[in-house]
Simulated assay, not measured.
Amino acid sequence: MTDDAYLFLVDDPAVPLGASVTAVEDLTCLETPAVRAWLDAHGVSATSPGVRLLPPEETDAIPDGAEKLPVPLNDDELDRLRRALMPGALARVEEELLAYRDCTGERDALLSRATAAGVPPHRIARLAGEDARTVATAAAQGQDRPSDPGPRQR
């Protein structure tokens, strides 16, 4: 196994191995001279149906003798590649988990800002769907931060 993903060519585009580059979208490696030269040398474009991509943990599945090129992908690109290879329902659940992570990543800061703005804790808990203790903890932590203005004085 390698740490790089691999671009590779399949003779028959109906072969269900790997993900098409178009399914992954926005790969920075496609702009590198090495990838451009490899594509040119094989007379294909990145959008050709026979150009496929596999993540590092699956590169052993590339057929012997297939034309291949290691390509470094960042974490976001690898996540997109792995989701492109998953069954649709599983990929949708992963997308939901990512959306949840993104919206909750700033939860404590938002709860603290709401407290600082003067929104009553019981109202914050109801609107945010959080437990009152969670709101109180986030508000207390926000008061400890020097950059947080803390609760508004009345």
Rank of each mutant, 00 (worst) to 15 (best):
M1K: 13
M1A: 14
T2Q: 12
T2N: 09
Y6V: 00
F8N: 00
L9V: 02
D11T: 12
D11F: 10
V15Q: 11
L17R: 13
S20G: 03
A23P: 03
A23E: 05
A23N: 08
D26H: 15
L27E: 03
C29L: 12
C29I: 10
P33K: 15
A34V: 07
R36K: 14
R36C: 11
R36F: 10
A37W: 02
L39R: 10
A41M: 00
V44C: 09
S48Y: 08
S48R: 01
L53W: 01
E57A: 07
E58L: 15
T59R: 11
D64N: 08
P70A: 04
V71I: 04
E77V: 02
L81F: 00
R82F: 01
A84M: 09
M86H: 10
M86P: 08
A89M: 15
A89T: 15
A89K: 13
L90E: 08
L90Y: 04
V93E: 00
E94T: 03
A99W: 07
D102T: 11
C103S: 04
E106R: 13
L111E: 09
A114N: 12
T115S: 14
A116C: 13
A125S: 05
A125F: 05
D131Y: 02
R133M: 14
A136I: 10
A138R: 06
Q141V: 07
G142S: 03
D144S: 00
P146S: 03
S147E: 13
D148I: 01
